[in-house]
Amino acid sequence: MDPVENIRITGLSNAQTIVWDAGLRLHREGLVARTWGNISFRVNENLFVITPSGIAYEHLTPERIVPVNLRDLTYHGKLKPSSEKGMHAAIYRDRPEIKAIIHTHQQAASSVSAARMDIENIQGEDRMILGPVVKTTPYALPGTKKLAKSAFMAIRGSNATLLSNHGAICIGKNMAEAFHVCISLESLCERFVAEKVMAAAGVKEYAPGMIHRFYLEHHARGR
């Protein structure tokens, strides 16, 4: 039975509600704006649901969350699923324990992704939540197979990865866990940048606004 054709599937509407609710929260927390980023949730071994393409989070309803076949990426309904569906499917296929995936364009993580740096040797609580390392994928255009492949390779052994010049992917065994990963990742990336700023400034404590002052003093045009 094609799971996409037979839409009366156990847990489908619950999964759609979980994704819809997560979309609103993601928007509220400022981790995405407008229609950027996407969220998905695994329904069973053959099906996941994902946010549609081109609709702002505040205009979504649970019914508009699109069921997608995990194997061949066929989908049900009139709305097109996110163009990153292939990336979500690749991760679900590779990591059977994962039930929720959030792709954000969060700010600090985006900055680190633009530097194409890995964050290595993660310690303490961050290590428990994110894993020992957060890798950054090689650059690929959004929505391409190259991006999907590099994302699932980079996230192996971790719960988050940075997509070069694009954003982040956070995964979890449930939606709450995936959210927790997003928030921890943002905090880790903020501290990662702050440490580099402190090192450049030769200070031991990071004060709000320091980056702006230091940047203008040392990097402004004509300096």
Partner: peptide, 16 residues
């Protein structure tokens, strides 16, 4: 966000 990435990456060895 783009300006932030530009400024942040100045401290991370430069953005790509």
């Amino acid at each position: 966000k783009g300006c932030r990435a530009y400024i942040d990456t100045a401290f991370l060895g430069g953005g790509f």
